[in-house]
């Protein structure tokens, strides 16, 4: 068995973090290939159930990343998202999901370096945490 390779689902905003990810890629910044990105029009449309579904399906972590406060293309979607993540960080740990498996960041369109660094840090952190409990078992 090789080293544990986590699967991370990232819900990223079209206007900022997705562009930052693109920039990180075109700038040839080195990043681990553990992240599956899902481009959303805004983090404000990340329903809590998307995050719950990802974790129950066995994702080892979920990243939600949007625009810095004040920069939201839709004025305040990111601030609504912050409340929803706050809510999930209250609920999920009660059922044994480590709080570190749900991460939220603000990464602007020009911050490709930040994006690559966030991914490297998150992958390292989740590797240290080990596999998510849902990965091992049939979830009813």
């Amino acid at each position: 068995m090789g080293e544990f390779e986590p699967t991370i689902i990232a819900f990223v905003c079209n206007w900022c973090t997705y562009t930052a990810a693109d920039l990180a890629g075109t700038s040839r910044l080195i990043q681990p290939p553990n992240v599956r990105m899902i481009r959303m029009m805004c983090t404000g449309m990340v329903d809590p159930k998307y995050v719950i579904k990802a974790l129950l399906e066995g994702a080892d972590a979920v990243l939600v990343s949007g625009c810095h406060p004040g920069d939201c293309h839709y004025i305040n979607g990111n601030l609504k998202a912050r409340r929803r993540i706050k809510l999930l960080k209250e609920i999920l740990p009660k059922f044994g999901f480590d709080e570190r498996r749900l991460k939220m960041t603000w990464i602007g369109a020009s911050e490709g370096i930040d994006f690559a660094e966030t991914i490297r840090e998150l992958v390292a952190e989740v590797k240290a945490l080990g596999p998510n409990q849902a990965r091992r078992q049939m979830v009813i």
């Binding site: 406060p69 004040g70 305040n76 601030l79 609504k80 912050r82 409340r83 929803r84 993540i85 706050k86 809510l87 960080k89 209250e90 991460k103 939220m104 960041t105 603000w106």
Partner: peptide, 30 residues
């Protein structure tokens, strides 16, 4: 408790997920 809210207490209190503030819950984003 996380949103300092109590369901059914008052019509004046906004439901936590129907509102937001610009400066709050900084711990969520590290």
């Amino acid at each position: 408790r996380a949103f300092d809210y109590e369901a059914g207490r008052s019509v004046e209190e906004e439901p936590p997920l129907s509102t937001f503030r610009e400066k709050e819950f900084f711990e969520v984003t590290g």
